[in-house]
Computed example of a mutant assay.
Amino acid sequence: MNATTRQDAPERARPAVSKVRGGSSETTARPVVIVHGSMDRSTGFRRVSDHLPDRTVIGYDRRGWGRSRSLGGPDVDHQAHVDDLSAILAELAAPIVLGHSYGALVALAAAAADPSLVAGIVAIEPPVRWLPWWPADDPWEKTVRGAAAEGGPEQAARALLTELLGPASRLHLARAQPSDLAADGTALISEMTDPTVDVPRFNPLTFATPTVVAAGSRSAPHHVEVARRLAELLPHGRFAEISGAGHASHVSHPQEVARLTEQIDSNPEFDSKPENHLIEEQRR
Rank of each mutant, 00 (worst) to 15 (best):
E154L: 14
P167D: 08
A159G: 03
G151S: 02
E150N: 13
R158P: 01
A168R: 15
L161K: 04
T162I: 05
L181Y: 12
L173I: 10
L188G: 06
A168N: 15
L173N: 10
Q177T: 14
Q155L: 11
P178D: 12
A174F: 11
A147N: 08
G166I: 08
G151C: 02
R170K: 12
E163M: 02
R170D: 15
A156M: 10
G166K: 10
A174S: 11
D180L: 09
L173D: 00
A176Q: 09
A174W: 11
R175V: 13
G185W: 04
D180N: 15
R170W: 10
E154W: 03
A187R: 00
H172P: 05
H172M: 14
D184R: 09
L160F: 05
G151W: 00
A149S: 11
L181I: 15
Q177S: 15
A157T: 01
E150S: 10
A156G: 01
A176D: 12
L165V: 12
R170Q: 11
D184A: 14
P167F: 05
G185R: 10
A176I: 13
P167S: 13
A149T: 01
Q155I: 09
L173Q: 08
A157R: 07
L188K: 01
S179E: 14
S169F: 10
L171Y: 15
L181W: 12
Q177I: 09
L165E: 02
L188N: 06
L165W: 08
Q155E: 13
Q155W: 05
L171A: 12
A187W: 03
G185K: 06
L165S: 13
L181Q: 03
S179V: 12
A187K: 00
Q177D: 14
A182M: 13
A176F: 14
E163P: 00
G152L: 06
Q155D: 09
T186W: 05
A183H: 06
A148K: 09
Q177C: 10
A148Q: 01
H172T: 13
S169I: 02
E150A: 06
P178C: 05
A157H: 05
A174C: 10
A187I: 06
A183L: 10
S179W: 04
T162M: 04
R170E: 15
A183D: 12
